[in-house]
Design a binder for these strands. Structure first.
Lengths: 194, 194
DNA sequence: ATGTTGACTTGACACAGTGTAAATTGACAC
DNA sequence: GTGTCAATTTACACTGTGTCAAGTCAACAT
Protein backbone atom coordinates (compact mmCIF):
# COMPACT_ATOMS: atom_id res chain seq x y z
CA UNK A 1 0.00 0.00 0.00
CA UNK A 2 1.45 3.29 -0.99
CA UNK A 3 -0.96 4.88 1.48
CA UNK A 4 0.92 3.02 4.21
CA UNK A 5 3.84 5.34 3.46
CA UNK A 6 2.80 7.56 6.32
CA UNK A 7 6.49 8.05 6.65
CA UNK A 8 8.87 10.92 7.00
CA UNK A 9 8.84 11.40 3.27
CA UNK A 10 5.12 12.05 3.27
CA UNK A 11 5.41 14.30 6.29
CA UNK A 12 7.97 16.36 4.41
CA UNK A 13 5.78 16.57 1.33
CA UNK A 14 2.83 17.66 3.43
CA UNK A 15 4.94 20.27 5.18
CA UNK A 16 6.15 21.66 1.86
CA UNK A 17 2.61 21.68 0.48
CA UNK A 18 1.36 23.45 3.57
CA UNK A 19 4.08 26.05 3.56
CA UNK A 20 3.80 26.81 -0.13
CA UNK A 21 0.04 27.05 0.14
CA UNK A 22 0.24 29.59 2.90
CA UNK A 23 2.61 31.78 0.92
CA UNK A 24 2.18 31.22 -2.83
CA UNK A 25 5.20 31.82 -4.97
CA UNK A 26 7.54 32.59 -2.10
CA UNK A 27 9.60 29.40 -2.22
CA UNK A 28 9.96 28.20 1.34
CA UNK A 29 13.43 27.54 2.68
CA UNK A 30 14.61 24.03 3.37
CA UNK A 31 14.95 24.86 7.05
CA UNK A 32 11.35 26.08 7.22
CA UNK A 33 10.06 22.90 5.66
CA UNK A 34 12.21 20.80 7.97
CA UNK A 35 10.92 22.64 11.01
CA UNK A 36 7.33 22.26 9.85
CA UNK A 37 7.84 18.55 9.23
CA UNK A 38 9.44 18.15 12.65
CA UNK A 39 12.63 16.88 11.13
CA UNK A 40 16.17 18.11 10.76
CA UNK A 41 17.13 20.06 7.67
CA UNK A 42 19.54 17.34 6.68
CA UNK A 43 16.81 14.72 6.76
CA UNK A 44 15.29 16.45 3.76
CA UNK A 45 18.36 15.59 1.73
CA UNK A 46 17.93 11.97 2.75
CA UNK A 47 14.67 11.88 0.82
CA UNK A 48 15.15 14.42 -1.95
CA UNK A 49 18.36 15.27 -3.78
CA UNK A 50 17.67 19.01 -3.64
CA UNK A 51 15.11 21.71 -3.19
CA UNK A 52 13.86 21.64 -6.75
CA UNK A 53 13.21 17.92 -6.67
CA UNK A 54 11.38 18.28 -3.39
CA UNK A 55 9.01 20.78 -4.96
CA UNK A 56 8.58 18.69 -8.07
CA UNK A 57 7.72 15.72 -5.85
CA UNK A 58 5.22 17.92 -4.02
CA UNK A 59 3.33 18.72 -7.23
CA UNK A 60 3.25 15.03 -8.10
CA UNK A 61 2.00 14.21 -4.64
CA UNK A 62 -0.76 16.77 -5.07
CA UNK A 63 -1.77 15.33 -8.41
CA UNK A 64 -1.95 11.85 -6.92
CA UNK A 65 -3.96 13.07 -3.92
CA UNK A 66 -6.43 15.00 -6.03
CA UNK A 67 -6.59 12.43 -8.79
CA UNK A 68 -6.15 14.68 -11.82
CA UNK A 69 -6.41 11.80 -14.17
CA UNK A 70 -9.80 10.69 -12.93
CA UNK A 71 -11.05 14.24 -13.02
CA UNK A 72 -9.97 14.91 -16.56
CA UNK A 73 -11.28 11.52 -17.62
CA UNK A 74 -14.77 12.87 -16.98
CA UNK A 75 -14.46 15.47 -19.71
CA UNK A 76 -13.44 12.72 -22.09
CA UNK A 77 -16.88 11.21 -21.66
CA UNK A 78 -18.74 14.07 -23.34
CA UNK A 79 -20.37 13.24 -26.63
CA UNK A 80 -20.16 16.35 -28.77
CA UNK A 81 -17.11 18.54 -29.21
CA UNK A 82 -18.88 21.51 -27.69
CA UNK A 83 -19.81 19.56 -24.59
CA UNK A 84 -16.30 18.29 -24.34
CA UNK A 85 -14.82 21.78 -24.53
CA UNK A 86 -17.17 23.03 -21.83
CA UNK A 87 -16.43 20.04 -19.61
CA UNK A 88 -12.70 20.49 -19.99
CA UNK A 89 -12.79 24.19 -19.21
CA UNK A 90 -14.85 23.43 -16.13
CA UNK A 91 -12.70 20.55 -14.90
CA UNK A 92 -9.32 22.17 -15.45
CA UNK A 93 -10.51 25.60 -14.42
CA UNK A 94 -11.65 24.26 -11.09
CA UNK A 95 -8.47 22.26 -10.65
CA UNK A 96 -6.16 25.26 -10.93
CA UNK A 97 -6.98 26.85 -7.56
CA UNK A 98 -6.19 23.59 -5.82
CA UNK A 99 -2.70 23.38 -7.20
CA UNK A 100 -2.01 27.07 -7.73
CA UNK A 101 0.34 27.81 -4.85
CA UNK A 102 2.66 24.87 -5.40
CA UNK A 103 2.50 25.18 -9.18
CA UNK A 104 3.33 28.85 -8.90
CA UNK A 105 6.50 28.03 -7.05
CA UNK A 106 7.63 25.76 -9.84
CA UNK A 107 6.55 28.35 -12.37
CA UNK A 108 8.89 30.88 -10.81
CA UNK A 109 11.70 28.40 -10.37
CA UNK A 110 11.60 27.19 -13.95
CA UNK A 111 13.15 30.47 -15.02
CA UNK A 112 16.40 29.74 -13.26
CA UNK A 113 16.34 26.00 -12.75
CA UNK A 114 16.62 23.49 -15.54
CA UNK A 115 14.99 20.61 -13.66
CA UNK A 116 12.07 22.77 -12.63
CA UNK A 117 11.71 23.88 -16.23
CA UNK A 118 11.61 20.32 -17.46
CA UNK A 119 9.06 19.23 -14.86
CA UNK A 120 6.91 22.22 -15.63
CA UNK A 121 7.02 21.62 -19.36
CA UNK A 122 5.96 18.03 -18.87
CA UNK A 123 3.05 19.03 -16.72
CA UNK A 124 1.90 21.67 -19.14
CA UNK A 125 2.42 19.22 -21.98
CA UNK A 126 -0.05 16.86 -20.35
CA UNK A 127 -2.51 19.70 -19.96
CA UNK A 128 -2.06 20.59 -23.61
CA UNK A 129 -3.14 17.11 -24.59
CA UNK A 130 -6.47 17.75 -22.93
CA UNK A 131 -6.80 20.94 -24.94
CA UNK A 132 -5.89 19.14 -28.15
CA UNK A 133 -8.46 16.44 -27.49
CA UNK A 134 -11.22 18.99 -27.04
CA UNK A 135 -10.22 20.86 -30.19
CA UNK A 136 -10.01 17.64 -32.16
CA UNK A 137 -13.52 16.70 -31.09
CA UNK A 138 -14.72 20.14 -32.10
CA UNK A 139 -13.03 19.80 -35.46
CA UNK A 140 -14.49 16.35 -36.02
CA UNK A 141 -17.96 17.81 -35.51
CA UNK A 142 -17.16 20.55 -38.02
CA UNK A 143 -17.65 23.10 -35.28
CA UNK A 144 -14.19 24.65 -35.16
CA UNK A 145 -13.93 28.34 -36.01
CA UNK A 146 -13.01 28.67 -39.67
CA UNK A 147 -10.24 31.20 -39.09
CA UNK A 148 -8.25 28.74 -36.99
CA UNK A 149 -6.20 25.69 -37.77
CA UNK A 150 -6.43 22.82 -35.30
CA UNK A 151 -2.95 23.61 -34.00
CA UNK A 152 -3.68 27.30 -33.58
CA UNK A 153 -6.95 26.61 -31.82
CA UNK A 154 -5.14 24.26 -29.47
CA UNK A 155 -2.49 26.88 -28.78
CA UNK A 156 -5.15 29.44 -28.07
CA UNK A 157 -7.11 27.22 -25.72
CA UNK A 158 -3.88 26.19 -24.00
CA UNK A 159 -3.04 29.84 -23.44
CA UNK A 160 -6.49 30.87 -22.28
CA UNK A 161 -6.51 28.06 -19.74
CA UNK A 162 -2.95 28.66 -18.56
CA UNK A 163 -2.31 29.14 -14.87
CA UNK A 164 -0.90 32.58 -15.63
CA UNK A 165 -4.24 33.63 -17.14
CA UNK A 166 -6.17 32.23 -14.19
CA UNK A 167 -3.81 34.03 -11.85
CA UNK A 168 -4.19 37.33 -13.62
CA UNK A 169 -7.97 37.24 -13.61
CA UNK A 170 -8.52 35.95 -10.10
CA UNK A 171 -5.54 37.39 -8.23
CA UNK A 172 -4.88 40.64 -10.08
CA UNK A 173 -8.40 41.43 -11.27
CA UNK A 174 -10.14 39.96 -8.25
CA UNK A 175 -12.54 37.72 -10.15
CA UNK A 176 -14.29 35.03 -8.17
CA UNK A 177 -13.75 31.46 -9.24
CA UNK A 178 -17.34 31.34 -10.50
CA UNK A 179 -16.87 34.47 -12.61
CA UNK A 180 -13.67 33.08 -14.00
CA UNK A 181 -15.32 29.83 -15.09
CA UNK A 182 -18.32 31.57 -16.50
CA UNK A 183 -16.37 34.00 -18.66
CA UNK A 184 -13.79 31.44 -19.66
CA UNK A 185 -16.63 29.31 -20.98
CA UNK A 186 -17.90 32.29 -22.94
CA UNK A 187 -14.52 33.35 -24.29
CA UNK A 188 -13.49 29.87 -25.39
CA UNK A 189 -16.87 29.30 -26.99
CA UNK A 190 -16.80 32.68 -28.74
CA UNK A 191 -13.25 32.25 -29.95
CA UNK A 192 -13.05 28.60 -30.91
CA UNK A 193 -16.51 27.67 -32.17
CA UNK A 194 -17.57 28.75 -35.63
CA UNK B 1 20.35 67.82 -20.89
CA UNK B 2 19.55 64.43 -19.56
CA UNK B 3 20.83 63.03 -22.85
CA UNK B 4 24.22 64.45 -21.91
CA UNK B 5 24.29 61.87 -19.11
CA UNK B 6 26.44 59.65 -21.24
CA UNK B 7 27.97 58.80 -17.95
CA UNK B 8 28.74 55.70 -15.98
CA UNK B 9 25.12 55.47 -14.98
CA UNK B 10 23.98 55.16 -18.55
CA UNK B 11 26.77 52.72 -19.33
CA UNK B 12 25.54 50.55 -16.48
CA UNK B 13 21.95 50.72 -17.66
CA UNK B 14 22.99 49.76 -21.16
CA UNK B 15 25.06 46.88 -19.84
CA UNK B 16 22.12 45.59 -17.79
CA UNK B 17 19.78 45.96 -20.76
CA UNK B 18 22.21 44.11 -22.97
CA UNK B 19 22.78 41.31 -20.56
CA UNK B 20 19.11 40.78 -19.77
CA UNK B 21 18.24 40.86 -23.46
CA UNK B 22 20.70 38.14 -24.23
CA UNK B 23 19.33 35.88 -21.53
CA UNK B 24 15.67 36.70 -20.78
CA UNK B 25 14.48 35.98 -17.29
CA UNK B 26 17.82 34.85 -15.97
CA UNK B 27 18.59 37.86 -13.79
CA UNK B 28 22.19 38.78 -14.42
CA UNK B 29 24.55 39.08 -11.49
CA UNK B 30 25.85 42.40 -10.34
CA UNK B 31 29.38 41.31 -11.16
CA UNK B 32 28.38 40.41 -14.72
CA UNK B 33 26.80 43.79 -15.27
CA UNK B 34 29.81 45.54 -13.77
CA UNK B 35 32.16 43.66 -16.04
CA UNK B 36 30.05 44.42 -19.10
CA UNK B 37 29.92 48.10 -18.18
CA UNK B 38 33.67 48.15 -17.63
CA UNK B 39 33.29 49.20 -14.06
CA UNK B 40 33.84 47.69 -10.64
CA UNK B 41 30.99 45.83 -8.99
CA UNK B 42 30.99 48.35 -6.19
CA UNK B 43 30.55 51.24 -8.60
CA UNK B 44 27.07 49.86 -9.31
CA UNK B 45 26.10 50.60 -5.73
CA UNK B 46 27.22 54.17 -6.22
CA UNK B 47 24.45 54.64 -8.76
CA UNK B 48 21.74 52.26 -7.62
CA UNK B 49 20.87 51.27 -4.08
CA UNK B 50 20.49 47.61 -5.00
CA UNK B 51 19.95 45.09 -7.74
CA UNK B 52 16.19 45.49 -7.87
CA UNK B 53 16.37 49.24 -8.28
CA UNK B 54 18.93 48.83 -11.03
CA UNK B 55 16.55 46.63 -12.98
CA UNK B 56 13.63 48.95 -12.33
CA UNK B 57 15.74 51.82 -13.63
CA UNK B 58 16.56 49.73 -16.68
CA UNK B 59 12.89 49.29 -17.57
CA UNK B 60 12.34 53.02 -17.17
CA UNK B 61 15.33 53.73 -19.32
CA UNK B 62 13.89 51.43 -21.99
CA UNK B 63 10.54 53.16 -21.88
CA UNK B 64 12.20 56.53 -22.26
CA UNK B 65 14.37 55.31 -25.13
CA UNK B 66 11.47 53.73 -26.99
CA UNK B 67 8.99 56.46 -26.14
CA UNK B 68 6.06 54.38 -24.98
CA UNK B 69 3.97 57.42 -24.36
CA UNK B 70 4.25 58.70 -27.91
CA UNK B 71 3.50 55.28 -29.28
CA UNK B 72 0.40 54.74 -27.22
CA UNK B 73 -0.71 58.28 -27.97
CA UNK B 74 -1.25 57.17 -31.53
CA UNK B 75 -3.98 54.74 -30.55
CA UNK B 76 -5.70 57.55 -28.71
CA UNK B 77 -6.18 59.32 -32.03
CA UNK B 78 -8.56 56.72 -33.46
CA UNK B 79 -12.10 57.90 -33.98
CA UNK B 80 -14.33 54.91 -33.30
CA UNK B 81 -14.03 52.51 -30.40
CA UNK B 82 -13.36 49.62 -32.72
CA UNK B 83 -10.53 51.44 -34.42
CA UNK B 84 -9.15 52.39 -31.08
CA UNK B 85 -9.19 48.82 -29.84
CA UNK B 86 -7.42 47.61 -32.96
CA UNK B 87 -4.84 50.37 -32.75
CA UNK B 88 -4.13 49.64 -29.10
CA UNK B 89 -3.72 45.91 -29.65
CA UNK B 90 -1.34 46.66 -32.49
CA UNK B 91 0.71 49.27 -30.64
CA UNK B 92 1.05 47.42 -27.37
CA UNK B 93 1.38 44.03 -29.01
CA UNK B 94 4.33 45.27 -31.01
CA UNK B 95 5.87 46.97 -28.01
CA UNK B 96 6.02 43.81 -25.91
CA UNK B 97 8.86 42.08 -27.79
CA UNK B 98 11.03 45.15 -27.37
CA UNK B 99 10.77 45.16 -23.62
CA UNK B 100 10.16 41.47 -23.06
CA UNK B 101 13.53 40.37 -21.71
CA UNK B 102 13.92 43.13 -19.16
CA UNK B 103 10.26 43.06 -18.20
CA UNK B 104 10.45 39.32 -17.72
CA UNK B 105 13.23 39.76 -15.21
CA UNK B 106 11.10 42.10 -13.15
CA UNK B 107 8.16 39.76 -13.58
CA UNK B 108 10.13 36.96 -11.98
CA UNK B 109 11.59 39.16 -9.27
CA UNK B 110 8.26 40.58 -8.23
CA UNK B 111 7.42 37.25 -6.63
CA UNK B 112 10.11 37.60 -4.03
CA UNK B 113 10.88 41.30 -3.98
CA UNK B 114 8.51 43.94 -2.73
CA UNK B 115 10.05 46.82 -4.65
CA UNK B 116 10.01 44.86 -7.88
CA UNK B 117 6.38 43.99 -7.21
CA UNK B 118 5.46 47.62 -6.73
CA UNK B 119 7.27 48.77 -9.86
CA UNK B 120 5.67 46.00 -11.87
CA UNK B 121 2.20 46.83 -10.60
CA UNK B 122 2.66 50.46 -11.53
CA UNK B 123 3.76 49.58 -15.01
CA UNK B 124 0.88 47.19 -15.54
CA UNK B 125 -1.46 49.75 -14.04
CA UNK B 126 -0.44 52.22 -16.74
CA UNK B 127 -1.04 49.57 -19.37
CA UNK B 128 -4.44 48.87 -17.90
CA UNK B 129 -5.40 52.48 -18.42
CA UNK B 130 -4.84 52.02 -22.11
CA UNK B 131 -7.14 48.99 -22.02
CA UNK B 132 -9.76 50.90 -20.08
CA UNK B 133 -9.67 53.78 -22.56
CA UNK B 134 -10.26 51.43 -25.48
CA UNK B 135 -13.13 49.68 -23.70
CA UNK B 136 -14.68 53.00 -22.71
CA UNK B 137 -14.59 54.15 -26.31
CA UNK B 138 -16.22 50.90 -27.36
CA UNK B 139 -18.90 51.31 -24.72
CA UNK B 140 -19.57 54.88 -25.73
CA UNK B 141 -20.23 53.69 -29.26
CA UNK B 142 -22.62 51.07 -27.90
CA UNK B 143 -20.36 48.38 -29.37
CA UNK B 144 -19.35 46.55 -26.21
CA UNK B 145 -20.37 42.91 -25.93
CA UNK B 146 -23.61 42.75 -23.98
CA UNK B 147 -22.47 39.96 -21.67
CA UNK B 148 -19.67 42.11 -20.25
CA UNK B 149 -19.54 45.03 -17.88
CA UNK B 150 -17.03 47.75 -18.68
CA UNK B 151 -14.82 46.59 -15.80
CA UNK B 152 -14.95 42.95 -16.84
CA UNK B 153 -14.18 43.79 -20.44
CA UNK B 154 -11.21 45.85 -19.28
CA UNK B 155 -9.99 42.97 -17.13
CA UNK B 156 -10.32 40.60 -20.03
CA UNK B 157 -8.47 42.83 -22.48
CA UNK B 158 -5.81 43.48 -19.86
CA UNK B 159 -5.32 39.75 -19.45
CA UNK B 160 -5.33 38.95 -23.16
CA UNK B 161 -2.67 41.59 -23.76
CA UNK B 162 -0.55 40.62 -20.78
CA UNK B 163 3.10 39.88 -21.30
CA UNK B 164 2.50 36.37 -19.95
CA UNK B 165 0.00 35.69 -22.73
CA UNK B 166 2.35 37.07 -25.37
CA UNK B 167 5.12 34.94 -23.94
CA UNK B 168 3.04 31.80 -23.98
CA UNK B 169 1.95 32.21 -27.57
CA UNK B 170 5.24 33.32 -29.06
CA UNK B 171 7.77 31.51 -26.88
CA UNK B 172 5.95 28.33 -25.90
CA UNK B 173 3.68 27.91 -28.93
CA UNK B 174 6.18 29.34 -31.40
CA UNK B 175 3.85 31.89 -33.00
CA UNK B 176 5.42 34.59 -35.07
CA UNK B 177 4.88 38.17 -34.03
CA UNK B 178 2.62 38.67 -37.05
CA UNK B 179 0.49 35.63 -36.16
CA UNK B 180 0.24 36.84 -32.61
CA UNK B 181 -1.01 40.27 -33.65
CA UNK B 182 -3.40 38.87 -36.20
CA UNK B 183 -5.07 36.43 -33.82
CA UNK B 184 -5.04 38.83 -30.92
CA UNK B 185 -6.96 41.27 -33.09
CA UNK B 186 -9.46 38.53 -33.90
CA UNK B 187 -9.83 37.27 -30.33
CA UNK B 188 -10.28 40.72 -28.81
CA UNK B 189 -12.76 41.65 -31.50
CA UNK B 190 -14.69 38.41 -31.11
CA UNK B 191 -14.74 38.60 -27.35
CA UNK B 192 -15.28 42.28 -26.65
CA UNK B 193 -17.43 43.56 -29.48
CA UNK B 194 -21.13 42.77 -29.50
C1' DA C 1 23.01 -10.16 25.28
C1' DT C 2 25.34 -8.73 21.04
C1' DG C 3 25.90 -7.03 16.54
C1' DT C 4 23.98 -5.00 12.48
C1' DT C 5 21.25 -2.02 9.86
C1' DG C 6 18.61 2.05 8.64
C1' DA C 7 16.66 6.40 9.68
C1' DC C 8 17.62 10.49 11.75
C1' DT C 9 20.40 14.12 14.30
C1' DT C 10 24.16 17.38 15.23
C1' DG C 11 27.57 20.32 13.96
C1' DA C 12 30.78 21.98 10.80
C1' DC C 13 31.93 23.68 6.46
C1' DA C 14 32.38 25.12 1.32
C1' DC C 15 30.32 28.05 -1.97
C1' DA C 16 27.75 31.72 -4.36
C1' DG C 17 25.90 36.07 -4.44
C1' DT C 18 24.31 40.47 -2.28
C1' DG C 19 25.24 44.34 0.21
C1' DT C 20 28.39 47.34 3.44
C1' DA C 21 32.52 49.69 4.91
C1' DA C 22 37.14 51.89 4.87
C1' DA C 23 41.13 53.46 2.83
C1' DT C 24 43.12 55.02 -1.62
C1' DT C 25 43.81 57.17 -6.25
C1' DG C 26 43.21 60.56 -9.97
C1' DA C 27 41.12 64.52 -11.93
C1' DC C 28 39.36 68.83 -11.88
C1' DA C 29 38.04 73.42 -9.76
C1' DC C 30 39.28 77.42 -7.47
C1' DG D 1 47.83 73.35 -2.56
C1' DT D 2 43.31 72.04 -0.82
C1' DG D 3 38.90 70.24 -1.24
C1' DT D 4 35.81 67.48 -3.56
C1' DC D 5 33.90 63.98 -6.38
C1' DA D 6 33.88 59.63 -8.87
C1' DA D 7 35.57 55.41 -8.83
C1' DT D 8 38.69 51.69 -7.24
C1' DT D 9 40.42 48.00 -4.25
C1' DT D 10 40.12 45.07 -0.57
C1' DA D 11 37.81 43.01 3.03
C1' DC D 12 33.99 41.34 5.38
C1' DA D 13 29.10 40.20 7.13
C1' DC D 14 25.11 37.66 5.95
C1' DT D 15 21.86 34.29 3.90
C1' DG D 16 20.73 30.05 2.02
C1' DT D 17 21.98 25.67 -0.40
C1' DG D 18 24.22 21.56 -0.45
C1' DT D 19 27.95 18.25 1.49
C1' DC D 20 30.36 15.63 4.92
C1' DA D 21 31.57 13.06 9.10
C1' DA D 22 30.38 11.29 13.33
C1' DG D 23 27.12 9.98 16.61
C1' DT D 24 22.38 8.38 18.54
C1' DC D 25 18.66 5.31 18.77
C1' DA D 26 15.37 1.65 17.95
C1' DA D 27 14.28 -2.59 15.65
C1' DC D 28 15.50 -6.90 14.50
C1' DA D 29 18.24 -11.18 13.99
C1' DT D 30 20.91 -14.65 15.95
Amino acid sequence: MSSEENSTRIRILKAAWNLLDSNPGVAARMSDIAKKAGVSRQALYLHFPNRTELFIATTKYQDSQFGVDEMLAQSRAAKTGQERLAAFVLAWGNYIPKIYAVAKTLMVMKETDEDADKAWSERMGDMREGCAAAIDALDRDGDLATALSVAQATDLLWTLLSIATWEHLTQDCGWSQATYIEHMQAVTRGTLIR
